[in-house]
């Protein structure tokens, strides 16, 4: 069997962070949110509803182990906090059903809505969450309560995943594709499809025609942003508008969506990839307080 070295251009790097300026022991409620996504897992610790620490890790093959790993990583970084100190844990994301230590599970749609208000402020009304497998357009009120939402149909499934595939095809790390795609003098015509399977064949055609990586990325992101805007317009875009999930870090997609919507996306206060886990942690806090009443 022929083995070929695979490079991992598609992976996001892992991060672990703790707010050194605070002492968690001053807080009344320590809540935890875990967002177990298809590609990455985030564990967030909040002290009285303020972000205190988080870990953003790759999701492994076992959901339970991935959740454990992320929580342990963040606790280790904090140093003096143990599981017992966490009052309430909410799990969300694809793998939410298999986090045994979560007190409750809530869908990523509700969590992203709630988290978006924390990450972007309470003026946000329309949230786009673009993960590896799903595309979600969520409308929220000022507290982050979901008013309405829409998810992609089958043919737009894996749009986020498609970006990873393209990274691999072009050998460009996922952290760089966004910037690179903006380095074109003129916006090329979008690739005609966002079906990942078809787009691949089209992109291969472009590679063979000798297109630059910048141009190919621009054409692909142009198509992706059209598809996203289509979904957004179906739910109705109300300002302010924000993007959560891994794609929010891809300026190539974000700028193009903004251009098509003729609307600026809000600037995040913290890493928007954390929105789901933050929402979960905020719900965890609310649920804990209610349980004590």
């Amino acid at each position: 069997m022929v083995t070929v070295q695979e490079s991992e251009y598609w992976r996001w790097p892992e991060t672990i962070w703790v707010d050194e300026s605070k002492n968690w022991q001053d807080a009344e409620v320590i809540s935890c949110g875990i967002d177990l996504g298809s590609v990455s897992t985030q564990a967030v610790i909040m002290a009285d509803g303020e972000l205190y620490a988080y870990a953003s890790m790759r999701t492994g093959t076992s959901s339970t182990a991935s959740a454990e790993k992320a929580v342990n990583a963040v606790l280790e970084k904090i140093g003096d906090m143990t599981r017992e100190n966490i009052h309430y844990t909410v799990g969300t994301g694809y793998g939410r059903v298999s986090i045994p230590f979560a007190n409750k599970t809530i869908t990523e749609i509700a969590c992203h809505g709630r988290g978006a208000v924390y990450v972007y402020g309470n003026t946000v009304r329309t949230v786009l969450d673009m993960g590896g497998q799903d595309l979600k357009a969520i409308k929220v009120d000022s507290r982050g309560k979901v008013i309405n939402f829409l998810m992609n149909d089958k043919c737009a499934a894996g749009t986020g995943r498609g970006i990873e595939v393209v990274c691999d095809m072009l050998s460009v790390p996922i952290t760089e594709v966004g910037e690179l795609s903006l380095k074109v003098d003129e916006e090329p015509e979008p690739v005609s499809t966002t079906c990942v399977v078809f787009a691949k064949s089209e992109i291969l055609g472009l590679i063979r025609k000798g297109w630059s990586k910048e141009m190919i990325l621009a054409a692909f992101f142009n198509a992706v942003s059209s598809r996203v805007v289509e979904l957004l317009e179906r739910v109705g875009v109300e300002p302010d508008f924000a993007i959560t999930g891994g794609i929010s870090k891809n300026v190539g997609v974000v700028r193009r969506i903004e251009r098509k919507l003729n609307m600026k996306a809000l600037e995040p206060k913290v890493d928007p990839q954390l929105a789901g886990a933050i929402g979960a942690a905020l719900f965890a806090r609310a649920l804990y307080i209610k349980s004590k009443k």
Partner: peptide, 10 residues
């Protein structure tokens, strides 16, 4: 559709 199947596998 293999793309959709991926979500199912996840």
């Amino acid at each position: 559709c293999v793309v959709f199947a991926e979500s199912e596998v996840v």
